[in-house]
């Protein structure tokens, strides 16, 4: 589902022409037909110089200061030829930065090929920075999952489990304790470099931050708890799986096991919490978040406990021996 993600040049232009200070200068006819399908950008200097192997024709092509200076060194017919050669590789569009004047041959050839050419008044670095963020927003690998995403002490906990297990009630309890709900039920998760970001799959603000509590129906957390109880976006850092307790269920009794859940190729810590009557799940979630913070700082409580225990056991043997040999 992610491989096929792409955006048309016309979408990019419509959504960001002001922010990126873009002007369309040639190849307008191809706006709807040319698609960018990679989050990375490419600077086609090498291709313009004649080497066209391994050309990434799914990427937006940036003509920065170096490329434009290089093109200037050609006489017009040679310039036309170099451009033509690159156009044969079918890139989706070109952006010239720093508001540089466009050579006539470039405009003509792009018009002929129907490949859009834009000029940005931003510096090359700024443009690459902004456009990469934008392409990531539109093209990042994403997945939808059922669960509840809560910010607990700054840690994004994704609470998952079968329907009716108490995810939403736990979230409600957490909000009551001053934590913040990102979304309940259907969560969109996407990858930002090696991080996972989560938000409500529901984009319309009027429908966000609603929680279904069995017996009450659907309630709006924002209307009850106010602005402090919600946030729109949070990094997903720990998965908490609620599981109905069954006899014979194997659970981690020490906290030495480090289970993970793989989401979009990223492994994040997974804690499986057996649900039993009378368990305070919100409090457990708070402790999970705090423990995660502690572990992040390099302090692993159970490993330390184990180390101390081993020390003690060694000492005990020594002490026992001393006591045994201590005959008055």
């Amino acid at each position: 589902m992610n491989e096929s993600k792409k955006i048309s040049v016309s979408q990019l232009f419509l959504e960001r022409n002001q922010e990126f200070k873009l002007k369309m200068v040639a190849g307008e006819g191809g706006m709807e037909k040319c698609f960018i399908s990679s989050m990375d950008i490419h600077r086609p200097g090498l291709a313009l110089s004649g080497f066209t192997g391994d050309f990434p024709s799914d990427r937006l092509q940036v003509l920065g200061g170096t490329e434009m200076a290089f093109l200037k060194t050609f006489d017009p017919p040679a310039r036309r030829l170099a451009v033509k050669k690159v156009l044969k590789l079918n890139p989706p569009c070109f952006v010239i930065t720093k508001g540089t004047k466009t050579p006539l041959e470039l405009r003509e050839e792009l018009n002929k090929a129907g490949i859009p050419l834009m000029v940005s008044r931003l510096s090359t670095n700024d443009f690459i920075h902004f456009v990469s963020d934008y392409l990531e927003l539109r093209l990042a690998p994403e997945t939808f999952t059922h669960g509840t995403l809560v910010d607990v002490y700054g840690i994004g906990l994704l609470i998952v489990g079968k329907s009716g297990i108490g995810k939403s009630e736990t979230a409600l309890d957490l909000v009551e304790r001053g934590h913040r709900l990102v979304a309940d039920d259907l969560i969109r998760i996407w990858k930002r470099r090696s991080l996972l970001m989560g938000e409500a799959a529901e984009k319309r603000p009027a429908f966000q931050h609603h929680v279904e509590i069995r017996g009450l129906g659907i309630i709006n957390l924002y209307s009850i708890f106010g602005i402090r109880s919600i946030r729109l976006l949070k990094r997903v850092e720990v998965v908490v799986e609620l599981k109905r307790w069954e006899k014979g269920m194997v659970v981690d009794r020490l906290g030495l096991e480090r289970a993970t859940r793989n989401i979009l190729g990223v492994d994040i810590p997974l804690l499986t919490i057996p649900v039993l009557p009378g368990r305070n799940l919100a409090m457990i979630c708070e402790v999970i978040a705090m423990n995660h913070l502690v572990v992040l700082r390099g302090y692993h409580p159970m490993e330390l406990f184990d180390r101390e225990l081993k020390k003690l056991l060694e000492n005990k043997i020594k002490v026992a021996r001393e006591v045994e040999e201590d005959v008055e």
Partner: peptide
Amino acid sequence: DGMRVNGKSILSLLT
């Protein structure tokens, strides 16, 4: 429209 949700979840269905 490509959005697949749990049919036992009222919020998802409304979404």
